[in-house]
Amino acid sequence: MLELIDLTKTYQGRGRTVTALDRLSLQVDAGELVCVVGPSGCGKTTLLRCVAGLLPYEGQVRVAGRPVTGPPEHTAVVFQEYGRSLFPWLTVRQNVELPLKEKGLDRARRTELVTESLEAVGLAGAHDAHPWQLSGGMQQRVAIARAVAYEPSLLLMDEPFAAVDAQTRADLEDLILRLWQRLEMTVLFITHDIDEAVYLGRRVIVLSASPTTVLEDLKIDLPAERDQLTTRSLPRFAELRGHVYAQIQRTKQ
């Protein structure tokens, strides 16, 4: 579904060149939920922006077999900055519907998708609210509903829960798991939170410090059904978390 081969990204500054990504290779199969963690400043967001076709890069990025030159088809993104990714002058319903309109779906289908997706994220009663009338967690739910309504085969998430409180974050993590299991999409989830990565991911990609490359590709052998209480208190969960933590600490030296 997603293939990165020797992905390299360099930024030209004043008289110096910064290599953000250094020949990074990674493969994600269709239907996988893969989390990417790394030390802060390691170019996680750069990686996602290359995949989303928002940044030029060297090397190869392929989504569904096609090289990425601009935003790939059937791909949706949820950003960390929920407040800035929603159109403040549109209502919740209009925010979710606009990409579907641009996609050329007819009215009946749009209504169906909007209703379904808002219900799935628990916002069935908020159709006519404006984003700024909602709490941060609810705004991020709208962004998730918009992404899901778009019926993506690839969902990219860039630290989507970094700016919401801990309880909301747990709810939203479970929401993503439910949606992923129901909708058969591939999810690439970027986070700086090791717990979150281990809890959500079926695989966790640990990135090195800049210039960034893949340090470890770790299979998460926890039971498929995840639960905030039981999963997080498994000895295996603690082991995996400790392992990823140690890896990331090592990169900082």
Binding site: A52, G53, L54, G70, P71, T75, A76, V77, F79, E81, R84, S85, F87, L98, P99, E102, K103, R146, Y150
Partner: peptide
């Protein structure tokens, strides 16, 4: 910028 990126991604 985030809003502009959102537009690009969703073809708005």
């Amino acid at each position: 910028e985030v809003l502009a990126d959102t537009c690009k991604l969703y073809g708005v």
